[in-house]
Design a protein around this nucleic acid. Structure first.
Lengths: 174, 174
DNA sequence: TTGCGATAGTTGAAACCTGAACTATCGTCG
DNA sequence: CGACGATAGTTCAGGTTTCAACTATCGCAA
């Protein structure tokens, strides 16, 4: 077994999985560990971002949303485009935008070419907020990721994408 | 840029991140991609497990919970032990166990040595259900993970743990 | 041009999760 | 003993997310 820097927050989980494996013959322990690790990291990232943006009255999802709008400030984005980019359902995006628009951080405009669509634009106020937040967030992210070398990051990206591709493929045929 | 098997479900997200980077100097694009990949995979795993166990009246969390109880069928588990193993808050675990107990899938007993504690045990009915479900689930998991070689899995595990450890460490000092 | 299937966005109901306060019990230190 | 801080579990209020149904609009083919 590879030995690594302690990671107490996951150790508890891993040992539980170990107990499962000990009693249940045939359990694909390593795969289960991988899936749980991914879930664990995802949750911790979210929580961490959430804590950071909370003082500004945002949560992780609305921050992610605002970042996308910030990057597309000139053109604006369509709601469904935004929901795909932020990785949220369309229904949820509607509510998030309701909220953000109530706070004056974004603006809805009716589409011109296609009147079903809605164009979302960040407001001056919203842009100011995100512009103020982003450097802090990026710095934090850098601190967390600095543990991995450039090569390790590339490896990790490659492996995760391979996994994502496999799952996509499986879902397609199913 | 590395070229990989298509992964349409993430490609949309990645191209959005690309647009962010194009307009926002200094954005740590690769790190953001990694974080989003992790979140994306986590969500897809959950959704997939969820769809599989739904016909049995469970969701992803309650299945995970039952699996832990199944593995500790002889001894039972304490509620907090269970919530750590399943990676859920204590409050949420209470609710989940209420639900599962209402369905007759687990049983609560008062602790003897320490009367604050509650011992949770899987019932015969619960064990039957999980015993029936597990092989299917493991098979599915195997299909999804088969895309990675044994070595790749080890690498991935190592990298994810390194990341988790770094985040743990950072959180500690903060 | 009109009708029809597809798409964009919203809504209401229900499922789900969390933080903070609360109760009961424990261990231990004086 | 008995007070007190810590721990186990629950509850409640409030927030978030989803699913399915709905409206409006579009593109296109007959």
């Amino acid at each position: 077994m590879t030995h690594l820097p302690a990671c107490p927050s996951f150790a508890v989980i891993e040992s539980s999985i170990g107990r499962v494996a000990a009693r249940l013959r045939g359990a694909p322990t390593r795969d289960i560990v991988l899936v749980r690790l991914i879930k664990h990291l995802s949750a911790r990232f979210s929580a961490h971002v959430g804590r950071m943006v909370r003082p500004s009255g945002l949560n992780e999802v609305s921050f992610r949303t605002m970042m996308m709008l910030f990057a597309n400030a000139e053109t604006g984005m369509h709601a469904s485009q935004l929901s795909e980019a932020a990785g949220e359902t369309r229904a949820n995006m509607t509510r998030i935008c309701d909220e953000l628009s109530r706070k004056g951080l974004l603006r809805r405009r009716a589409g011109i070419a296609d009147r079903r669509r809605v164009v979302l634009e960040i407001t001056r106020k919203g842009a100011a907020l995100i512009g103020r937040l982003l450097p802090k967030m990026w710095n934090e992210l850098d601190l967390g990721m600095r543990a991995l070398s450039a090569k390790e990051k590339l490896d990790l990206e490659r492996l995760l994408k391979k996994l994502a591709a496999a799952i996509d493929a499986k879902e397609q045929t199913a």
